[in-house]
């Protein structure tokens, strides 16, 4: 492609309202075809024309990227992938009821608190920990997974007062959770195991 000198961009940068037009750039608007000899380029001589082969590469590569980006639209709304996605977050109706399989630490006074991802799943990422817990509980060997979590609890100085681990599936009304309190509407404990604190049980 030739790089024909055209009108310089007449729009000031929105981040710099009083800025002068950029002398080193030419407007991309289709009707801006008037040569502007008065505006010197800050980047020296005019560029050599782009070869047909290079232009073909640019359009082919751009078309490929755009086709890939929009390809998830043709798939099922519930399918997702990476890095191609149709970004289904927030797109489905979200009921107030929410059911989650979680790892709870049971304290000496009977309080139950969710264990953090590094303890419950050995992973810092909260959503990945959710999948790890779900798989650990529903993957066929919940007891072994409970002991695995309990071992991490025992190794954590922040959880010295946690006496047991419960793997449970709980359901809440997410709006009521913040209005009336965090008690679950229902909770099913799949397995409970003790924490092997050093010198303890």
């Amino acid at each position: 492609m030739a790089a024909p000198p055209t009108e310089p961009d007449a729009e000031p940068d929105a981040t710099e309202p009083d800025a002068e037009p950029d002398a080193s750039e030419r407007d991309a608007t289709p009707d801006a075809s008037v040569p502007d000899a008065a505006e010197p380029s800050a980047d020296g001589p005019a560029a050599a024309p782009l070869s047909p082969a290079y232009r073909a590469f640019v359009y082919a590569f751009s078309a490929l990227v755009l086709a890939l980006l929009f390809s998830p639209v043709l798939g099922h709304p519930d399918e997702d992938s990476f890095p191609l996605s149709h970004y289904p977050m927030f797109s489905h109706e979200r009921p107030r009821d929410f059911t989650l399989t979680q790892a709870l630490g049971v304290h000496a006074d009977g309080r139950r608190r969710a264990l953090p991802p590094m303890v419950s799943a050995g992973n810092r990422e909260v959503l990945q920990s959710m999948m790890t817990i779900h798989h650990g509980v529903h993957g066929g060997n919940a007891t072994a997974y409970c002991h695995e979590v309990a071992a991490r609890v025992a190794a954590s100085a922040d959880h010295a007062d946690v006496e047991a681990v419960e793997l449970a599936t709980s359901t809440w009304d997410v709006v009521a959770y913040f209005e009336t309190g965090p008690e679950p509407l229902e909770r099913h404990v799949h397995v409970r195991c003790g924490v092997p604190h050093e010198g303890g049980e």
């Binding site: 989650l100 953090p116 909260v126 709980s170």
Partner: peptide, 8 residues
């Protein structure tokens, strides 16, 4: 709620 109940 999900973050709280996953300990985050």
């Amino acid at each position: 709620v999900r973050k709280i109940e996953l300990g985050s």
